[in-house]
Lab assay of single mutants.
Amino acid sequence: AVSDRLIGRKSVVMEAISPQNSGLVKVDGETWRATSGTVLDVGEEVSVKAIEGVKLVVEKLE
């Protein structure tokens, strides 16, 4: 599936994300709604860990 190619990809937070609120990330020039178990600020680099419905699950790059 097209979405499977996103797992493991680097992306950049475009709208802040917290455990309570989804935000936005940009992956390969496309904007996606995303969630995370931690707070992520605009501009942080993250990695796509999973896809749940139409949202990406991301975490901060170490």
Rank of each mutant, 00 (worst) to 15 (best):
D4E: 13
A34I: 00
S22L: 11
E52R: 10
V42T: 05
V27Y: 04
S18R: 07
W32S: 00
L40F: 09
G53L: 03
K26E: 12
D41E: 14
A16M: 11
E62V: 13
V39N: 13
L40G: 02
E45S: 09
L24K: 10
W32R: 00
K26C: 15
D41T: 11
E52G: 04
L61A: 09
V27R: 00
R5S: 10
D28H: 05
G37D: 15
E52H: 11
L61S: 08
W32E: 00
E15Q: 13
E15I: 10
S3T: 12
I51S: 04
T38V: 11
T35K: 08
K26G: 07
S11Y: 05
D28S: 06
T35H: 05
K60G: 05
S11F: 08
P19K: 05
E15N: 06
L61W: 13
V54S: 15
V58M: 02
E59Q: 09
V58W: 00
K10F: 09
R33E: 14
L24S: 10
G37E: 14
D28L: 09
T31D: 06
G43L: 04
R9E: 05
V57P: 00
K60M: 05
K10Y: 10
S22T: 13
D41W: 12
Q20L: 11
D41L: 13
S47Q: 14
E44V: 10
K26V: 13
V25R: 02
G23K: 01
I7A: 03
E62K: 11
D28T: 02
S11K: 00
S36F: 04
E15Y: 08
E59I: 09
K55V: 15
T31S: 08
A50T: 06
L6N: 01
V13Q: 01
E30D: 08
A16T: 09
A50K: 08
K49F: 08
I51D: 02
V39G: 06
E44K: 05
S22F: 09
D28P: 01
R9G: 05
L24H: 05
E44T: 12
A1I: 12
A34N: 04
A1C: 14
P19V: 05
Q20R: 10
V54L: 14
S22H: 09
A16C: 11
M14F: 10
E45K: 08
E45A: 09
K49I: 15
T38D: 15
Q20E: 12
V48N: 01
L56M: 05
V27T: 04
V54I: 12
L6T: 02
G23T: 02
A16Y: 09
S47A: 10
S11C: 15
L56R: 01
V57I: 10
S22K: 04
D28W: 06
V54N: 15
T31P: 05
K55E: 13
R5K: 09
G23R: 03
L6G: 00
N21M: 13
K26W: 14
P19G: 06
S22I: 12
P19L: 06
E44N: 05
M14R: 04
E15C: 13
R33H: 11
V42P: 07
L6I: 07
L40T: 02
G37W: 14
I17T: 04
A1S: 13
V58G: 01
V2H: 12
E59A: 10
Q20K: 10
Q20T: 13
K10L: 14
N21W: 09
A1G: 11
V27L: 11
V58C: 03
V12N: 03
K49V: 15
Q20W: 14
D28K: 03
D41R: 13
I17Y: 03
A16G: 08
R33W: 11
G23E: 03
L56H: 02
M14V: 15
V12F: 09
L61F: 11
G53A: 04
K49P: 00
S36T: 02
T31W: 10
S36G: 05
V57C: 06
L61I: 13
W32A: 00
M14K: 05
E30Y: 10
G29C: 12
S47R: 15
V25I: 08
I51K: 05
L6K: 03
S18M: 06
V12L: 10
N21A: 12
S11V: 15
R5M: 08
G43N: 05
V54H: 14
G23Y: 10
S11M: 12
D4T: 13
R5A: 09
V13G: 01
E52T: 09
K10V: 13
E30A: 08
M14G: 01
K26R: 12
V42N: 03
S22Q: 09
L6Q: 02
V58P: 00
L6Y: 07
L61Y: 11
D4L: 13
V27I: 15
I17Q: 02
V57D: 00
S18Q: 05
V54K: 13
E59C: 08
V48Y: 02
K55L: 15
V46T: 04
K60N: 04
L24E: 05
V13I: 04
T35W: 07
K60S: 07
T35F: 07
E45F: 14
S11E: 02
V25S: 02
S36K: 00
L61T: 09
D4W: 10
G43K: 03
L40H: 11
V39R: 11
K60H: 07
R5E: 07
D41Q: 13
V39L: 10
M14A: 07
Q20G: 14
G23D: 00
V54W: 14
